[in-house]
Amino acid sequence: MSNSAIAELSKIPIYRQILSSSSEFATNYLTVASIYKDLLNDFNKLALAEVEQISEVLNKFSASGELDKSASQNTLPKLVSLFDTKRNQFVEYVTSTIFPETEKPRADL
């Protein structure tokens, strides 16, 4: 992680605690956050047909007797249904919080 990125993140209270906790933790943070940012963006782009596929698999898994908390809740399809047109807002909110922009365009350029 670059010094500028650390400096930018340290302005935000929740990251200040992370960055002060462990150098290894801080170094890994942005790398790990990026994969979850990608996953959430995938969630945003999931077509309804894909959501239906996931729902069917989760139903089969639940019915198989190998019950699992997340599978039984079938949460991903439910959230897509709930969010409807707000799915994009949800993902933007979460990703901007976990992964704030560290290099913003300079207004004087």
Binding site: L40, D42, S70, T75
Partner: peptide
């Protein structure tokens, strides 16, 4: 579970 299901998918 969003993340869990997406990783599996």
């Amino acid at each position: 579970s969003i993340l869990s299901d997406l990783l599996c998918y």
